[in-house]
């Protein structure tokens, strides 16, 4: 499950490991970290937002671990990836490019590539891939499709998007 947490850290160097270690110890995967240095609190702490993927049942243990490390947990948000779309890519898709592309979308913190099938018929012929993108909402999904479009343009890939469903532009289908 994707989790967003608002935390407060002491404004001294080396605090971040108090956050990262417990998350990775429990098998979590960080997607994004933002320090809000400009919003320092009167307690002399710095607000930090972290987005990561982790098993839902480890959350309580994680919270204990963070608090033992002196990290204040202000808010825990469970992000449901409700919006989903499929995108077909055709062209000279090189594996590393695809990896970058996926990383870029995963790095947004609001969307991720969940499923990828690749077909590479001939060495110098064009290859094809289909990916599924999940995002927290329709707007976020549209943003991630936008990222993909830019990449496709840069790398001269043909991208084929789903027909918009009426009433929810962006080829979005909502699923709980």
């Amino acid at each position: 499950m994707r989790i967003s947490m608002d935390l407060e850290l002491q404004d001294t160097p080396g605090q971040l490991k108090h956050v990262l270690t417990p998350i990775s110890d429990l098998g979590g995967n960080i997607a994004s970290i933002v320090h809000h240095h400009d919003k320092k609190t009167f307690r002399n702490t710095v607000p930090v937002s972290v987005i990561f993927d982790i098993e839902e049942q480890t959350l309580e243990e994680l919270q204990d671990g963070l608090e033992q490390n002196g990290v204040t947990v202000v808010r825990i948000g469970k992000m449901r990836l409700r919006a989903r779309t499929h995108i077909l890519l055709i062209g000279h898709i090189i594996h590393t490019d695809l990896r970058d592309t996926i990383d870029e979308i995963d790095g947004t913190g609001f969307a991720e590539v969940q499923d990828l099938s690749l077909s590479m018929p001939a060495i110098d012929g064009p290859s094809s891939a289909i990916i599924t993108i999940m995002a927290t909402g329709d707007e976020e999904l549209k943003k991630s499709i936008g990222i993909l479009r830019q990449i496709a343009e840069r790398k001269d890939l043909l991208i084929i998007e789903p027909l918009d469903e009426r009433g929810s532009p962006g080829g979005v289908s909502n699923e709980e």
Binding site: H86, S119, G125, I160, L163
Partner: peptide
């Protein structure tokens, strides 16, 4: 955008996920 870059593999991948490709 036309259909001249579309490959057979791409159509098969789409089909496996329940889609057809059409020029719209």
């Amino acid at each position: 955008t036309g259909i001249d870059r579309i490959t057979q593999d791409a159509l098969q991948l789409a089909r496996q996920r329940g889609f057809a490709v059409k020029l719209v």
